[in-house]
Design a protein around this nucleic acid. Structure first.
Lengths: 175, 175
DNA sequence: CGATTTTTTGAATCATATCAACGTACGTGG
DNA sequence: CCACGTACGTTGATATGATTCAAAAAATCG
């Protein structure tokens, strides 16, 4: 769906090295990236300096601080690369962007609603389930990602320490 | 903004008693309600039978399982009243509803994005902050609600037990 | 008022964090 | 290709925060 849009315009294709930072907090407007190849993540750094991963974006995904975009507030997120990646920087990323890319606004709305659904699910999981169940949910929801993402980042996504996830894994092994 | 829409149509105005359930899981499509007066909440019941409150809706808010709506999947949420309330049942709640009520789709999009922002914030808080800080965040974000909502429901919103919240409060008192 | 629900308190237990040490894998320069 | 250094992952000991369970006190409702 997005490919068409990108091909017919002069969008910037970037070759990104692993660990390269594509966006830092404070930028306004925030950037958005379409991942052609590789793997990006977005994360937030809290007051104690700890990182919390909000999403992973493998091939075919768009990643951005959509909140910052559409509300024109300074971004609070980092975006960087977990693998060497090929990404397209979306130049004009606002509401009109979607109306061009999507067949209609309704498709954008559906996308946003899906994002709400994912976040809502995650809130309930964080509130109701111990780390082990959250990890199992992650495994079944993103099976294709679990091999590509280092343990400590999965832990950061789940909201636990790397040590805790390591323990969970070892318990799961011995069962 | 919504009032205009409701007044010029034959929408159903409901008088709701405290504790009355407006929506249960399984309903498809899910309903949506505009709160004229009173206080509603939406919540999910997990596999262990525990409730987790997703949002409170005081006067002027719309509450619904928007995910269920727009994706036409069965609802997983309950909606009920925490106070005697006066609500308007939105009959035709889909994308076209918003295009009539809102000046443009962009306003709907902005609403959805705000919802994403709130949920994203909540995910990070759940992952990074101990219960006390989450409670303080709740207090400062919804000062007008804290007196109206019983402790045990605030606990359910924060993802902790009522006992834990009671302890936090007593510690805060003695400081 | 009495009955029911909510809030508080305390004790025992559990899950996860923290800290420290060690083992392993990986990439780079020699 | 090897040796080294750096990152990452694992493991164990201890500390902390929250849960669970039980019971009493306080608030609310009919």
């Amino acid at each position: 769906m997005f490919e068409n849009y990108f091909n017919k315009r002069e969008n910037e294709i970037l070759q990104i090295k692993k660990n390269q930072v594509l966006q830092e907090p404070g930028r306004n407007p925030a950037r958005a990236f379409y991942v052609k190849k590789g793997l990006l993540r977005s994360y937030k750094v809290d007051d104690n300096g700890k990182s919390h991963i909000l999403m992973f974006a493998p091939e075919g995904w768009i990643i951005s601080d959509i909140e910052s975009h559409i509300l024109s507030t300074p971004s609070e997120l980092y975006i960087d690369a977990l693998e060497d990646s090929e990404v397209i920087k979306i130049k004009k990323f606002d509401v009109t962007f979607f109306t061009q890319v999507e067949k209609s606004n309704n498709q954008l709305i559906e996308k946003l609603v899906r994002r709400i659904a994912v976040l809502q699910k995650r809130v309930v999981l964080l509130m109701s389930s111990p780390a082990k169940q959250r990890y199992e949910h992650f495994l079944s929801t993103y099976p294709q990602l679990t091999n590509r993402i280092p343990l400590k980042m999965i832990a950061s996504y789940l909201g636990i320490t790397p040590e805790a996830l390591s323990n969970i894994r070892s318990k799961m092994r011995s069962q």
